[in-house]
């Protein structure tokens, strides 16, 4: 049994070792036994081909909270990616169906350089950076993940948004043939996210193409995803196929799904509760108890200025 002391005071030696891994197949087998309710049955079984993730070279950066990394096995097996199913282990089981090469990103809206760009034209694979960021999910759990990628700001500038453009809108692939979860109307597909232009130009905003020294696994949003660590995880949109510049605040997928629960900004804020979850504390994956959630997920020195004068109770 465990002790009553706060688990975040535990010694490093007592923190759950890397060997912790997900084995929810077992749960589902047991759970499904009575009523056969495995959430997404019925997908035609086809041969599973796993992609070998190529190692990526990247320079180290200063972005490192100095906290213990969440084991790679947890990062790649415990995912919310509803296009592949709504259980945490569905993406790892189903995302192999996603074809990530070649990958094209459509750029449109208020830009002087619209068009269809090959991923390699947007992301310079010779100039990758490693950034270790905290990731805080709205479901009150968190991880620490070493991402590889490029900062978003230079890319935005390269894509030449017009002066009237105030927002960047991102869209995830929505292809039924590759994404079994899309058969269900969980949300209004495709998944849409957005940032205010100054948020997108913030030095923290990052476009990831890898983690733990390798290409992104499909279940983590391959081949390219956003990482905005001061916002709840769902803002960090995965498998981006479209970037649009607009003067209209984008209606994000979750805003459409439950307008009273999700706002546009979705900054990590322990003082503003989500209707389903208190946001005051979080469980760091691998730790037993909960730790206090930090304002802006601990990135206030970088981003607090973006929201100066705004009522964050209203602009949640």
């Amino acid at each position: 049994m465990f002790r009553r002391s706060s688990p975040w005071q535990e010694k490093e030696s007592e923190v759950t070792p890397q060997s912790v891994y997900l084995n929810r197949r077992q749960i589902m087998t047991g759970a499904g036994a009575l009523f056969g309710l495995t959430a997404l049955g019925g997908i035609a079984a086809s041969a599973r081909e796993t992609r070998t993730l190529a190692p990526l070279k990247a320079m180290k950066s200063d972005f490192d909270p100095g906290e213990e990394l969440t084991p790679e096995s947890a990062v790649t097996s415990y995912n919310n990616y509803y296009e592949f199913g709504t259980n945490k282990d569905d993406p790892a089981a189903e995302a192999w169906r996603l074809k990530v090469k070649p990958w094209t990103v459509k750029v449109d809206g208020m830009t002087d350089k619209p068009g269809n760009y090959a991923l390699e034209d947007i992301v310079d694979y010779n100039a990758l950076e490693e950034r270790i960021y905290r990731l805080r999910c709205v479901e009150a759990w968190s991880m620490v993940i070493p991402w590889l990628g490029v900062p978003l700001a230079p890319l935005i500038r390269k894509l030449a948004p017009q002066s009237g453009a105030k927002f960047v809108r991102f869209e995830t692939l929505a292809d039924k043939s590759q994404m079994p979860g899309i058969r269900w109307p969980v949300i209004d597909w495709p998944y849409v996210e957005g940032l205010r232009m100054d948020e997108a130009l913030n030095p923290l905003a990052f476009l990831a193409v890898g983690l733990y020294g390798k290409e992104l696994p499909n279940q983590n949003g391959a081949p390219v995803r956003l990482v905005v660590p001061w916002k709840y995880g769902f803002k960090s949109i995965k498998s981006i196929v479209r970037i649009s510049f607009t003067d209209d605040m984008p209606r994000t997928a979750w805003m459409k799904s439950a307008p009273s629960e999700y706002g546009f900004y979705s900054n990590v804020n322990p003082e503003v509760d989500h209707p389903r979850w208190s946001q005051a504390r979080e469980r760091r994956i691998g730790e037993f108890g909960r730790r206090e959630t930090l304002m802006f997920n601990g990135y206030g020195e970088w981003v607090a200025d973006l929201y100066r004068g705004m009522d964050l109770q209203k602009n949640y």
């Binding site: 049994m1 465990f2 007592e14 923190v15 759950t16 070792p17 060997s19 912790v20 891994y21 997900l22 084995n23 929810r24 077992q26 749960i27 084991p71 096995s73 947890a74 097996s77 415990y78 945490k88 282990d89 479901e139 759990w141 469980r283 994956i285 691998g286």
Partner: peptide
């Protein structure tokens, strides 16, 4: 799970 060993409940045993 209490001992931090691999277990059927996965990496977030409380949620599971």
């Amino acid at each position: 799970a209490f001992q931090g060993l691999p277990n059927g409940l996965g990496v977030n045993p409380q949620e599971a």
